[in-house]
Design a protein around this nucleic acid. Structure first.
Lengths: 341, 341
DNA sequence: CTGTTAGCGCATTCAA
DNA sequence: TTGAATGCGCTAACAG
């Protein structure tokens, strides 16, 4: 590997001159620059980015930490981050936090191989994140609230209000027997969504039946199994509110397998508005989050933190109910029937 | 930021001793090590990974280059890479090649910020890849064939045979009027798939009608628009072979919008077996690639190249036809009707 | 405009 | 077993 020294030597100039020339500094005469550039080409010189980072003490790169690089994740969110950082002239690298303390994410976080990080990985401990964040290494967390830390900003979706809207949508259409398909209990998202659900039920004075509170781990399979159980129980609700779309899809699969028609016999509603939710049969009613905006905002926050133009602040983003075909008005006769039970 | 110097000072030892202690070397007395570890904890010391990389001249990290981090990409492939590298104790970072020479991918490639790269990004030039690859920076390319370079290995899917199988499947079921929905003309994948299609047509002595050769850029929208055009043309084929699933989905949407039933009135077949292909209505017949294996193999190849246990070699992976519901036997009466045309 | 020089933080060699 | 010294490749302050 040719180094800048070799280039300087071949061009017959000092290393610093070569460096200036290679970095398009105006301090160097055009002809000298020419010589340097030529020498670099001849030697097929490529700057060593690592040495550069070490010296400059910055990388112009932001780290995006996902639980699993192989998805499913919010592609709109990533797109928001990607577009924004590109326009700010920052690089973006993504890595996974799978594997605990040995994960690439943990390594990069601890060893500070970027200028900041955006984290969407619930398996990373708050503590680890808090230890990594500093003034010169701001972090935006997307899936949790970490307050009281000067260099950590939280951007969260208003899950509670989203959950409320979703539940209200069902209630307004005559549903009273509603099951909630829960995600992991340690997930903030899940908790908030459920709180919104509970609030709507309470306002409508509908008691929540424990046997219609199921667990599905936010996965398609989890939703499938939980719904299977629900079906086996015999006493089906008239609607299922799934804590996320993946589980809702699993639930619809289970219902389909059991010959139960959605939405004719049972309504299903999800949360997230993942792309697939437009391609299920029937199309899934769900709650949408402004994911692109979340991503873009996160990138801006990191950027402005680095440039120290910003005081720490946290954000709560609104949600929007997307009504599609998997939910519908409870039929009158069924309503009557059910009330007899 | 505390550096190793601070740790050494606090522990009352030399920097080298601190370094050894921190790296679990056996050259240091247990009690000395203890002191160092404690000092590190007190100072909340975190090693500077960049300095370490510079000194060691390696990063223990592999770079995965995707055209667009925000997908859609082959998640099974990424999973294969991810799992394998993790088991080999290598880190994985992913970045996008969007933005041409300013992209993070180009920077990382040129500045060699990793120990090797796996590339699945057709917008990167062969030349750029060739310039980056060296003995100590092996590259695996997945979407193209680059031979004659000692440090570049190609792992490609047998697209031609896949295209042949898909076309044959249609032909065997009585279809003769088949449109081919093409991806970007500079895409090797697309070209090979089409070649397979042409071969099958030729063997069956079916002429290829230029007006049924459409372009869709491998995107859903591209497939949608191309199919819209096809419909407007008036003379519909009895089957559409889309160069990838995204376009096939776009095509099915266009057909649905026009009230044309799949597969009753027209068969559709895709390529890739993306996850969504199981969730379309009807489910999409397509060609599957062993993506997990491709990813895993690529990771192994990089690893073994780094460890210099390997001679350069290229791989062609087989495909498999996945028959679902979007394709079916051409009805006899239609067959007759068509033959009159 | 150009050259000399001092580190960036760390791992590692060589002496002690 | 420990410590002093060196250099990875680069940038940037400073001096000329």
């Amino acid at each position: 590997m040719a180094t800048i020294k070799d280039v300087a030597k071949l061009a017959g100039v000092a290393v610093s001159t070569a460096s200036y020339a290679l970095n398009q500094s105006s301090k160097v005469a055009p002809q000298t620059a020419r010589k340097v550039i030529d020498a670099a080409r001849v030697l097929n010189y490529q700057k060593n980015g690592i040495a550069r980072d070490l010296k400059r003490n910055k990388t112009d790169t932001i780290l995006l930490i996902l639980h699993n690089l192989a998805g499913p994740f919010y592609s709109e969110l990533v797109r928001g981050v990607q577009d924004t950082l590109q326009s700010l002239n920052y690089g973006l690298i993504a890595c996974s936090s799978m594997g605990g303390r040995d994960s690439t994410a943990s390594r990069f976080l601890a060893e500070r191989r970027a200028d900041g990080a955006i984290i969407l990985a619930s398996n990373l401990g708050d503590q680890e994140i808090e230890r990594a964040a500093r003034k010169d290494f701001p972090i935006v967390v997307l899936d949790r609230l970490i307050l009281n830390h000067d260099s950590i900003m939280s951007v969260v979706v208003d899950n509670k209000s989203g959950g409320y809207e979703a539940a209200k949508h069902l209630i307004d259409r005559g549903h009273r027997d509603i099951a909630y398909l829960s995600g992991p209990l340690d997930s903030r998202d899940n908790l908030q969504r459920r709180k919104g659900f509970e609030q709507a039920m309470q306002e409508a004075a509908i008691p929540i039946r424990p046997k219609w509170l199921l667990k599905g781990e936010f996965t398609r399979q989890g939703g499938y199994l939980a719904t299977k159980m629900l079906i086996l129980q015999g006493d089906l609700p008239s609607a299922i509110f799934a804590g996320n779309d993946e589980m809702a899809i699993g639930a619809m699969n289970a219902l389909k397998d059991a010959g139960i028609k959605v939405p004719r016999q049972i309504s299903v509603i999800g949360f997230d508005d993942i792309e697939m939710s437009r391609y299920t049969t029937p199309q899934l009613t769900t709650v949408s989050q402004a994911n692109y905006e979340v991503g873009s905002l996160s990138a801006h926050l990191i950027y402005r933190s680095i440039k120290e133009e910003i005081a720490k602040k946290d954000y709560i983003m609104p949600t929007e109910l997307i009504i599609r075909d998997s939910s519908r008005e409870l039929m009158k006769e069924v309503r009557g029937q059910r009330e007899q039970v």
